[in-house]
Design a protein around this nucleic acid. Structure first.
Lengths: 193, 193
DNA sequence: ATATATTTGGAACGTTCATTTCAAATAAAA
DNA sequence: TTTTATTTGAAATGAACGTTCCAAATATAT
């Protein structure tokens, strides 16, 4: 019976995500989103609810896209240590290709709003938990196959890697020299060997 | 001849800094600053210029306060490695005592606005340069006194530490468990020994 | 005491904000 | 073809935004 949603939701989310990523949540206006998505105000509100709701959907979409990219990256590895090396290489390329110096949407979101909006904190915590889980599994496998040392538990190394990756992402906002970033990454990984 | 500025500029900056730190630049309104400082709108504009100007002054004030705190911390150390350990301990305590989960004002500022406002980028770069200089000197001294290894140059380790500290600060927004943070710090420092 | 440069208080500025409203357009189902 | 649920466009909402303005208050220097 009804007229059906005509726009490509994935594409709209991608465009909205770019704006949020570039300007941050608070500096992004509804007008910015209308301009970027070429959707009408009403359509945005109809389809997504509020600005915050849309932002949350963008975060989830961003998370999904990255999860896929990361899985693809990890599959190319011979062993777990190599996988972690590829993971850092992946992030360095993300930084290099980020010409606007936007940083990571999720990390930025934590900086800007983690202590202000519970719904975001919930997202960020669950995002963190899944990432820790991924890293812990990776390290554990590396320790089993003896490519990663046993000086610390897999969980401890997972936290270390999480923190290090966030640091690299943040540092990449101001430093986008590939050599410098690679040296940092090598130094981070050195600990595991 | 003139009536003279009556308020305590240092104190006003401290109060304004707290608001900016807690809510971020864009989410902070001029009304918030009026309320927090108990100054009149006109007085703020008269004394500081614009919201952005005031923010920049807050950043500088924040930077100065931290520079002093860090210098005091480093002075307590027996050697350079110990100094770095104390530095991490200092940051961990900052995180623990930050009950609102605000994170670091400077790191947050980079996330929120580094790619939007040149005046901030300038500040952030010069802030980064001084910090790199401090860390490099520390590592160099540690290498001379053989408390830090020579696997990498002092400059390389300085970048590594910079990135690691930022990571720790960002991670501390969501994780404020002291044990976890200490383990991360130990793992970071391990590389230098 | 008077003059003077500056700071204040409070209202007002025009703009932009997120969101709502509602009639017109639309496309599937009957 | 008519009905119907939904999406759309455009304008309007009131509140909040950063900033400005100006008269009144004030503290120093004369």
């Amino acid at each position: 019976m009804p007229k059906v949603e005509t726009f490509d939701k994935e594409l709209v989310l991608k465009k909205a995500t770019y704006v949020f990523h570039n300007k941050g949540f608070n500096a992004t206006s509804m007008q910015d989103l209308v301009d970027a998505t070429a959707l009408n105000r009403s359509s945005i509100y109809n389809s997504f609810g509020s600005k915050l709701d849309l932002f949350l959907e963008c975060l989830k979409s961003y998370e999904n896209i990255y999860t896929i990219k990361i899985c693809e990256t990890l599959h190319k590895a011979d062993n777990s240590l190599h996988a972690i090396e590829l993971l850092f290489e992946f992030y360095i390329n993300e930084i290099i290709n980020d010409k606007d110096g936007k940083g990571c949407l999720v990390v930025n979101c934590a900086s800007e709003m983690a202590n202000q909006e519970q719904s975001l904190t919930n997202f960020l915590c669950s995002n963190q938990d899944s990432f820790i889980e991924l890293l812990e599994g990776l390290v554990l496998k590396g320790q089993e196959e003896s490519t990663i040392n046993l000086k610390r538990t897999s969980k401890e190394y997972a936290f270390y890697l999480l923190s290090s990756i966030r640091g690299l992402r943040t540092t990449g906002i101001l430093i986008s020299n590939k050599k410098d970033l690679q040296t940092i990454a090598k130094t981070i990984i050195q600990t595991l060997i």
